[in-house]
Design a protein around this nucleic acid. Sequence first.
DNA 1: TCTACTGGATAGTGGCTCTATCTTAGAGCT
DNA 2: AGCTCTAAGATAGAGCCACTATCCAGTAGA
Lengths: 208, 208
Amino acid sequence: MQLKELSDATGTSPASIKYYLREGLLPPGESVHATRASYSDRHVKRLNLIRALRQIVQLPIEQIRSILVLADDGVPHLTLLAHVQRVVLKLGTEGGEVARTSAADAVVRLRNWPDVDSDARDALNRHISLMEGLGIGLPPDLLDQYSSAVDSIAGFDLAATTEGKDTDSVILTAAVGMHMHSELMLKLLALAQASHAIRRLDDRQMPP
Amino acid sequence: MQLKELSDATGTSPASIKYYLREGLLPPGESVHATRASYSDRHVKRLNLIRALRQIVQLPIEQIRSILVLADDGVPHLTLLAHVQRVVLKLGTEGGEVARTSAADAVVRLRNWPDVDSDARDALNRHISLMEGLGIGLPPDLLDQYSSAVDSIAGFDLAATTEGKDTDSVILTAAVGMHMHSELMLKLLALAQASHAIRRLDDRQMPP
DNA sequence: TCTACTGGATAGTGGCTCTATCTTAGAGCT
DNA sequence: AGCTCTAAGATAGAGCCACTATCCAGTAGA
């Protein structure tokens, strides 16, 4: 398979493919000779992964590269998934100490999750502090409800993520899955808010 | 108050303020004479709103403008909130017909939300279809759990959003709140996934 | 009057993701 | 063998976005 075919197979312009090659996201094809290189199914898979991370999850090239480098280093999936999380959650950009809210810790105990330090946990703690700082109140049982919901999805999701797939698929499922669930939540919340708003505001404007 | 003071009061560079003025996000100050204009508290509020929408919610200038135009037109808050949702949910970019999944409709009935067509509902339907198309499975009761959680938050949130505030504050609370809840969800999900992953993958790698 | 600073207009910057062009060289057909 | 077509590789440029720096002119305060 040569570049043009790779392009056709993935719907990516040859120019973009060349760009990804230059950036080291896509390994070079096997060079047949000076003016012909051949690409394999692995390239198709990899390219699809890159495109999904760019277009759906909207990760910048640099971060996609950081994920792929790990994947190609053959690190354990657990390590890889942790890194994918770090990237999708946009951690590492915001430095600083971990907040002293222990809301996340409470959730961990409640859900009986393994009590391990993790970036996700720090991120959650930091985020809750941030919301408090912004004066966005969290009803007391909200975290319970949320965490119950995500707890049930996580097992389900992870099964799909890890069941004997190749590394590229694991990344894709994990990153795209996280993104999609978060968007799902956003849209559900919007619908809920719209519904409540209609009830509350419409009544005011046109009383019975 | 002149430009420099406005800058100090909001931590925004004078150059950026000028830019927002040019873009019509910020109404011009009252022109005292050719080389002096005076800005009011309204400008401080507006500027803080703009900054929050840029830096926290990360909306592009163009969309911020579309929100502010509506706000200044004095449309009803319900209309305004609907538009804010549309922008935060990134609707309107993806054209096309509404999917035929009626998952969102089921949720609406279950939650006893007013059965009104809305962009949020269309967005939810479209998103669920998209996830199905990507092969991201949703456990049967997941939407119930999610929607139960967001239902309880929406009322709570909306009370904070609408209680006798000026329009700029309503926008800020709504947009920032939506964004923050969605991020919260993302981080909770990450933590849940990390926890499940540790249980599942760690055991494999180092059996007891 | 002179200086310092302001407001206003215009042009430029930097980061990012591509995209277009140019050159060289082998492939396949006749 | 010769001719054309297209690929690969390298380099430079485009286009978008959110600023930011520069320039000019006018006025306030010393």
